[in-house]
Amino acid sequence: MNNKKAILLLWGFFACFILMGAPKTYKADYSEKYPVLDGKIPGDPAWEKVQWEEGFLLHRKNASPQYPTRFKMLYTKDALYMAVECFEKDPAKLKKVYNFNEFWIYDTVEFFLMPAKNEIMQFIANYESMTYESIPGNVAKRTSFRTGWKAVGRKGDKNWSVEFCIPFYLLGKVPASSDLKITGNICRNSVTTNERSTWSLQMKAFKDPAGFGNILLKKVPAKAKKDLEEALKKPHWLSLAERWKSIRKDPAWEEILEKFPAEKAALEKLIADEKNYPANSGKFYEKLSRIESYASKQEVRERKRIWKRFFEE
């Protein structure tokens, strides 16, 4: 009897030893509904049935922070979404931001995703929808600099919240044929309590993959598989909208846009219809590509001309 107890205890200890060491896993499901990116989570039909994930731990300590943080995730045909709520004693007293380039001294949420080796992406946002990012050069190259993503924050009575939208085009992978595991972490800096906390226990710097947990995107339903795969082939509407916004009033693009009046008019219509960006992303891409392709060919021609001018070859 004693031997059996001892063996059971040993196995129990062993199991705990293993389990405590096993990375945390969050499972995210497909959603047909798109969250409205406004920082408001209660009342958003897309988030209604998704459960909150809690249990944040203090950075480098296996202990709970003073004020909790919770999050939930889902994915749509073209992006991974995350909603985060950061509880505060008094959100009105959150530190005013002077220079978000120094984001680490303000109240923020940092979202880390590592879909592949050497592709640790860091997305930072705060309650005022200020964002910052660290996206490796090889990802920028892979996506031809179409690295658009979005976060919208909002201050509430007892908390502040933020919603992230991370396109699959940026991640480079989708759960089309099977579940997709992406390692990552959600980290929070709370200035009022002078606490840093993380979803997956992190004993090193926030960015250290050793402390990452697993974000498991469950395999997509068959009816949405094709659309999901398409999401990898062209930039997300966020990148497209961002790109159009940056060039539409850019004087450097004026001459080129004059040559594409129909495309310009169509894009202006599309950009004004923010609610339908996801639905119109195909049209966006088609119109913008035509203009950019022309611009790119023109630049190549110009460079050849200049080179010939300099070196007669």
Binding site: A140, F145, S246, D250, P251, A252, E254, R303
Partner: peptide
């Protein structure tokens, strides 16, 4: 117009060119 529209933080910016 060229000088006034240079954006050194644009993705396509190339100091040499």
């Amino acid at each position: 117009r060229f000088l006034d529209t240079v954006n050194t933080f644009a993705q396509e910016f190339d100091p040499a060119w």
